[in-house]
């Protein structure tokens, strides 16, 4: 019970001000770790303000003071009870070269599901075009309308140089590709919110289009052109979409929660940082793929021999495989150290 409110405020205010300063400091320097003494003092101040709030909570005449103490307690609570790692300074190189591959490997199962769904789509698209010539027109979206005609005729036009659509607008075309593909990737992750069903449909549909176009060109005897055209950017772009699908499937799995006893909020809370890393890594990959597609893929023989383009694609694929599996030992060691800590 507080009888003398002014005295109570005068006595307690230095603690509130001190707590406020500690909180301001923590907020201004997210990477700063408190020393043991500072942490003890911080904890003491938090308990003190909690007690003060309990005393003032039913005190009619001080709503403003109560709101002030509530706001301060809420801030201190967020710091004291936060068990997740404090935000470290973001190091882009370390994040992309170490964290991204590590997160990718941590959820490798979802990636396998992602590529299997896509392959099923590819097979479906291939069979569809084999069984029915009109399947191409029925299934192909408008943005791929340039693939509706005869592949041999298109190859002849591309190779004669009569139909280079992007020779004057490489940068614009690259940026358009990046924005579109990153948008699709974000959608692949976001559709995980439909318990993964939307992501599965999107991956399957992407596979169908690849299957339709692929088999159509192979059937027309234009396999080399297809490889030269698709490989330089496709070996990065397609895995990027698959990784985005991996993210969407992980989100769907967290929502379903099959075989996981943790509550929904805990499952989603645990997945959040990994999803953010996956989508960030995918965006970087798609920026690269956009440049390659605009500045390299659109040039055909005789400007750039197909062998060179195919070789370039193969090298990229090898580097990608190495990159995604790189640092495994370091990562495992770091993981073990984290567990020990």
């Amino acid at each position: 019970m507080i009888i003398d409110l002014p005295r109570f405020i005068t006595a307690e205010r230095p603690s509130w001000t001190e707590l406020e300063k500690v909180l301001d400091r923590l907020q201004a320097e997210p990477g700063r770790a408190l020393t043991l003494d500072e942490a003890k003092r911080f904890h003491f101040l938090y308990q003190k303000i909690s007690a003060d709030l309990a005393r003032i909570a039913t005190f009619a005449s001080e709503p403003e003071l109560r709101h002030y103490l509530e706001a301060l307690t809420a801030r201190a609570y967020a710091e004291i009870h936060e068990t997740r790692e404090r935000g470290r300074r973001f190091r882009p190189a370390q994040w992309f070269f170490a964290e991204f591959p590590r997160v990718f490997r941590r959820h490798l199962g979802a990636f396998h599901v992602s590529w299997i769904i896509t392959i099923v789509g590819v097979l479906f698209g291939g069979f569809a075009v084999l069984l029915d010539d009109e399947a191409k027109e029925a299934i192909m979206p408008e943005m791929f309308a340039n693939h509706l005609g005869d592949p041999a005729q298109r190859v002849a036009e591309e190779e004669s140089g009569k139909k280079n659509r992007v020779s004057e607008v490489h940068a614009s075309f690259a940026s358009h590709l990046m924005a579109n593909n990153i948008g699709v990737s974000i959608k692949a992750v976001a559709l995980g919110l439909t318990y993964g069903i939307g992501t599965i449909i999107l991956l399957f549909y992407n596979g169908v289009i690849v299957g339709l176009i692929g088999l159509d060109y192979i059937r027309a005897g234009q396999g080399v052109f297809l490889a030269g055209w698709l490989l330089p950017h496709g070996v990065i772009e397609i895995p990027a979409i698959l990784i985005a699908g991996q993210g969407g499937l992980l989100l769907g799995k967290a929502l379903v929660g099959h075989g996981d006893r943790a509550p929904l909020t805990a499952r989603l809370r645990a997945l959040g940082p990994d999803l953010a890393t996956l989508i960030g890594g995918v965006a970087v990959m798609l920026v690269w793929a956009g440049f390659v597609e605009s500045f390299l893929s659109q040039y055909h023989q005789p400007v750039i021999p197909y062998a060179v383009k195919i070789a370039f694609g193969c090298v990229e694929l090898a580097v990608l495989v190495w990159f995604l599996s790189s640092g495994r030992k370091n990562a495992d060691a770091a993981g073990a150290a984290e567990v020990r800590a």
């Binding site: 002014p6 405020i9 005068t10 205010r13 001000t17 001080e62 003071l65 002030y68 706001a71």
Partner: peptide, 10 residues
């Protein structure tokens, strides 16, 4: 009847 507010707004 109260002491002045603790200095900073909520």
């Amino acid at each position: 009847q109260r002491a002045s507010a603790p200095g900073r707004s909520v």
